[in-house]
């Protein structure tokens, strides 16, 4: 495991999160502390162990494809920050 310093700005960019300079400093220190604690896992021998994603027996769950009522479009769109007609309105994504 690595104990190198986290590049908080880079990680925040990946997470699409704008941070203030103050947050970068504070979160950087706090995440560094936490990583020290989680680095304890390096002591565990896991070479012969499979990863667990979910504990309880579970296989692919399939169901019949049956048409049934879904959420009302108006109700859903009314909760959106911005709508236009039957759509969510977003800032321009593709350049002109």
């Amino acid at each position: 495991m690595s104990s190198e310093k986290i590049d908080v700005r880079y990680v925040a960019k990946l997470a699409r999160l704008a941070l203030t300079d103050d947050e970068v400093a504070r979160f950087g220190a706090q995440l560094g502390d936490l990583l020290e604690h989680v680095n304890a896992l390096a002591k565990l021998d896991v070479s012969q162990v499979d990863a667990t994603a979910q504990v309880v027996e579970s296989r692919n769950v399939e169901r019949d494809d049956i048409v049934r009522p879904s959420l009302d479009r108006e109700t859903v769109l009314n909760e959106a920050p911005q709508r236009q007609g039957g759509f969510f309105r977003v800032p321009r994504i593709i350049a002109e």
Binding site: M1, L41, A42, L44, V46, V49, D50, A51, T52
Partner: peptide, 17 residues
Amino acid sequence: YYDAYYVRAQKARTLIA
């Protein structure tokens, strides 16, 4: 970092179970 942190934690989870 995925293997060093996330996958290792999932393996530790197996041991705990």
